[in-house]
């Protein structure tokens, strides 16, 4: 086993993606604690400019793994290529960003290598030389601390946004080394046909000043009108958590979160929204967050400025009424 901490660069459209820098900051932090070295691995074809961008951004080395099979993403080729890299280098750890792509290939890689994989990590600490990883569990209502029973090598993916990208030490001129993988014997069992746009957004919530976002706590479709009434008196747009859209209570272009729109209003009312991380990433840049939820431990309160703990069926109409009165007074 070597003293290397590898991390996988994600890139697209000729650019390094932001989560890569978060990963780098995380890997560097871990490496300095454990006296290890960080190497960034780049997979693809025609990736010289990507490698150069990373080499300029960090002190340690960059491994360029170029092969025709890696031109576009495919889990069979990605997993095989990374498997060969792990076999060659026997790294201490391999770090990924917990993106949709990582979800698609990293568990496969772990199973193929018969090693453990701790996914979606939000914090990491070292206790008596042992690594402990914190992740969210139970709809983000609880956290779980996990450890590896065997290894290294350790496979870890970190949650997007949990480690700051600017923690990565930048500036430098890392050597770019070619690493070779042989994918000629790997069957490509999954053919990429095309990328399609899910839905053209009819409404652009990114410019909304005020958003009243409704979650499953609204209970019944008929109850949506109480949120709509509040939105009307505030001149706000209606937003939603994913389940409401999945149930077709509201159109897909009202969804806020990782697979919906990203918004940054002045005030965000979260009404019966629990505050799962996939929702939070879409609205955490709101200047003010007001959460109305009957559960005082709902994770949404962690990022709220003001919280009302109570039944939204009582609180929301009361709020609508109070806003109306206020408007009448100042008119």
């Amino acid at each position: 086993m070597s003293d290397l901490i590898l991390l996988l660069a994600e890139h697209g459209g000729g650019r390094v993606r932001l989560p890569t820098w978060e990963c780098l900051g995380f890997a560097q932090g871990l490496a300095s604690q454990l006296k290890k070295h960080v190497v960034t691995v780049v997979l693809g074809k025609d990736i010289d400019s990507i490698c150069a961008e990373i080499a300029a951004g960090q002190q340690q080395s960059v491994w360029k793994v170029s092969a025709p099979e890696l031109e576009s993403y495919n889990p069979d080729y990605f997993s095989a290529a990374l498997g060969q890299i792990v076999q060659q280098a026997r790294p201490y750890a391999f770090v990924f960003s917990h993106t949709y792509r990582t979800i698609d290939f990293a568990p496969k890689l772990a199973a193929a290598l018969d090693i453990g994989f701790i996914s979606d990590v939000i914090r990491c600490r070292v206790e008596d030389g042992r690594l402990l990883f914190l992740k969210s569990a139970f709809h983000d209502k609880l956290t779980a601390e996990l450890s590896f029973c065997v290894g290294p090598p350790y496979l870890v993916s970190i949650q997007i946004g949990s480690f700051p990208a600017d923690a990565a030490q930048r500036g430098g001129n890392a050597p770019v080394e070619d690493k070779f993988v042989d994918l000629s014997a790997v069957p490509n069992r999954r053919k990429m046909l095309q990328i399609v746009q899910a839905l053209k957004n009819q409404v652009d919530l990114s410019k909304a000043e005020i958003i009243v976002a409704v979650g499953r706590g609204i209970g019944k479709r008929e109850n949506l009108k109480i949120a709509e009434e509040l939105a009307a008196v505030l001149g706000a747009e209606i937003g939603a958590s994913r389940p409401l859209v999945d149930m077709e209570w509201l159109p897909r272009d009202r969804q806020i979160g990782s697979s919906g729109q990203t918004v940054a209003p002045r005030v965000y009312f979260a009404v019966g929204v629990s505050g799962a991380i996939q929702h939070i990433v879409g609205m955490k840049n709101a200047a003010f967050v007001v959460a109305i939820n009957k559960d005082p431990n709902a994770p949404i309160f962690k990022i709220a400025n003001y919280g009302i703990v109570g039944d939204l069926l009582e609180v929301v109409p009361a709020l609508t009424e109070a806003v109306k009165q206020q408007r009448a007074q100042s008119a």
Partner: peptide, 12 residues
Amino acid sequence: GKKIQIERIGFP
């Protein structure tokens, strides 16, 4: 055998 384990859980 298992590769990873939960050590403890808690509230965020």
